[in-house]
Amino acid sequence: MEFFLQQLVNGLTLGGVYALIALGYSMVYGILKLLNFAHGDVYMVGAFAGYGVLVAFGGPADPRIPVVTLIVLMFLAGMLASGILGVVIERFAYRPLRNAPRIAPLISAVGVSFFLQNAALLVLGARFRSYGTARMVDPATGLQWGPLRISIIRIVVILSAVALMVVLHLLVQRTKLGKAMRATAFDREAAAMMGIDVDRVIVATFLIGSVLAGAAGVMVGLVFSRVYHFMGFVAGLKGFTAAVIGGIGSIPGAMMGGLLIGLAEAFSAGYISSTFQNLIVFGLLIVFLLARPRGLFGVPEPVKV
């Protein structure tokens, strides 16, 4: 039972991170029908920005400011850097391709991804950087319930992921911008005819999606400590997978998809075999997609004739 709970916690942390990455994917997809393969690298930049703040304030072992303030600052820096980057990418790599064939921005995105990865390699070097959270916050502190342990940093990460998702939900459901985003996702031309500034909505979508990716980057740094130039690639694939599993374009779907994949990974590694962990996860997903071809929350599109 503790083993189960332990894997549940592990899966939830990982899933929360995947969900945040998937949200960016899914929001952009919902509006532009574009698979933004550079999204993972935006997340990488966010993680590095957080690391930069950490180093600037004296590193994990003896920070010059209180740890809580430091973590907040790291989140802000990561979200800011990623947000700006996302908007810049949209402006220069995607906007010129707004009416191009659907696959063209895909290749453009791949180009951006190559560029960002190697720019990071050039500027920051290839060495793995470590947030060193274990030296900042003792990993053994936190909730302890019998043999089950949840470290304080995991709690922080799970809570902030949930908080960000709630904020996003309110933003999309309750604000004017959210309404405009939903309208644009539903039908871009019609939205434009109703006086919605579609370009601005798209920029806002990229901004929000990238900010979430930046937050995810800092979270990964905090919980899983390692930051390096190539981290966005795998995370991007996972985020993409989560977005599709949830029903691509659907915001609650992306959240659920992320959690589902995180849990599937933790439980398959825990209960079956770590060697075949990926195989099992992919196998499950294949079966799932065959059974529900439009993901968890996807609705069949009406066929226009």
């Binding site: 899966g11 942390t13 981290m231 995370a235 990974e265």
Partner: peptide
């Protein structure tokens, strides 16, 4: 056991 180099999290394995 075996785990890919670029996996994000090892805690599921650690729990084993």
């Amino acid at each position: 056991e075996s785990v890919s180099q670029d996996v994000t999290d090892f805690s599921a394995l650690v729990a084993k």
